[in-house]
C-alpha cells in the first residue's frame, strides 16, 4: 500500500471509530452502568438493542464498549499531548542551546531511559490510589523521552545547517530563525512521532486497566473490558473478542497511520 493510501484508509477508519464512540451511546437507549441480573451474558442481538450483548453484571456491552473507546482514546490523546509538549520543549531547548546544557539534558534523558518505567507507573498508581488524572501524567511522562531525543537530534542538525547560518549572518532574529527556519522543518517528524506515541499510550493504559490498576468501575476502558472478557471467555467468548478486536484495530490503525505519515514526509523531504 502506498503511503498516501495508507494515510487515507487508516485515517478514515479511526475517524469512523471515534464518531461511533461519540454518537453510539447517544443513539442506543441503554446506558453503561445499569446492571440487570436477568440479562447476564446475553449474546449480541437486536433484542433490547444489545448489539454487543451484555456483560457478567447484565450491563449493555455496546454502550460500555463505546464508553471504553472514549476513555481509551481520551487517555491516549491527552497523554500524547503531554509528551508532545514536554518532549518538543525539552528536545528543542537542548538542541538549540547545545553545548554543555545539551550534554547535561541528554544525560538525564539517557538515565531516565534505563529505568523500568512501567514499574514506576505501577508504583505511582499504588501510591496514589489509582487517580484517573494520574494515568495521563504517568503515561505522558514515559513517552516524552523518545520525542525529546528525536526533536533534539533534528534541531541540532538543523541548527548546523547552512541556511540557518545564512539567516544569522543577515541579522534575522533568533525568534524568526526558530519559527520560520527550524520549526517548519521539525513539523513532519513531530507529527509522525505523535501518531506513534498514541498507540504506545493506549498500550500502557490498557495494561494498567487490565491489571486492575487503571480506570475503576463503573468507568471502563478497552483494557478493562478485555480483562472482564478474559474472566468470562469460556462462557461468552464475545465479551473478550469484541473489545479485543476493537483495541487491536485502533492500535493497528495508529501504527499504520504513523508509518504512512513517515513515508509521506520522507518522500516529500527527498524530492
Amino acid at each position: 500500500m502506498s503511503g498516501n493510501r495508507t494515510i487515507k484508509v487508516t485515517g478514515t477508519l479511526l475517524l469512523l471509530i471515534t464518531v461511533m464512540a461519540l454518537v453510539g451511546p447517544w443513539i442506543n437507549p441503554n446506558d453503561y452502568m445499569t446492571m440487570d441480573l436477568d440479562r447476564i451474558l446475553r449474546s449480541p442481538s437486536a433484542a433490547g438493542m444489545h448489539w454487543f450483548g451484555t456483560d457478567g453484571l447484565g450491563r449493555d456491552l455496546f454502550v460500555r464498549t463505546m464508553h471504553g473507546i472514549r476513555v481509551t482514546m481520551l487517555v491516549a490523546i491527552v497523554a500524547s499531548l503531554v509528551s508532545l509538549v514536554i518532549g518538543v520543549a525539552y528536545g528543542a531547548i537542548a538542541g538549540f542551546v547545545g553545548g554543555r546544557v545539551d550534554a547535561v539534558m541528554m544525560r538525564l534523558v539517557d538515565t531516565l531511559y534505563a529505568l523500568p518505567f512501567i514499574f514506576f507507573v505501577i508504583l505511582l498508581m499504588v501510591a496514589f490510589e489509582r487517580n484517573f488524572l494520574l494515568i495521563f501524567v504517568a503515561i505522558g511522562a514515559i513517552n516524552w523521552l523518545d520525542m525529546a531525543r528525536i526533536v533534539r537530534g533534528q534541531t541540532l542538525s538543523l541548527r548546523e545547517r547552512e541556511f540557518v547560518e545564512a539567516a544569522r549572518l543577515t541579522g534575522v532574529s533568533a525568534a524568526r530563525i526558530i519559527f520560520r527556519h527550524i520549526a517548519p522543518n521539525l513539523m513532519g517528524i513531530v507529527i509522525v512521532y505523535v501518531t506513534l506515541t498514541i498507540p504506545q499510550a493506549i498500550l500502557v493504559e490498557s495494561f494498567l486497566s487490565f491489571l486492575g490498576l487503571g480506570v475503576q468501575e463503573p468507568q471502563t476502558s478497552l483494557g478493562a473490558l478485555v480483562d472482564a472478557g478474559v474472566n468470562q471467555m469460556e462462557r461468552a467468548a464475545f465479551t473478550l473478542l469484541i473489545p479485543a478486536t476493537l483495541l487491536a484495530a485502533i492500535l493497528m490503525c495508529f501504527n499504520f497511520l504513523g508509518d504512512g505519515l513517515r513515508d509521506y514526509f520522507d518522500a516529500r523531504h527527498s524530492q
Binding site: 487490565f210 472478557g229 473478550l240 473478542l241
Partner: peptide
C-alpha cells in the same frame, strides 16, 4: 509483523488460550 506489533499481549494471550486451549 505490523499486526504483531499492534496487538498487545493482553489481547493475544487470552485469544490464544480461547482458541488453542479452550
Amino acid at each position: 509483523s505490523m499486526i504483531g506489533i499492534s496487538i498487545p499481549v493482553l489481547v493475544v494471550a487470552p485469544v490464544l488460550v480461547l482458541l488453542l486451549a479452550v
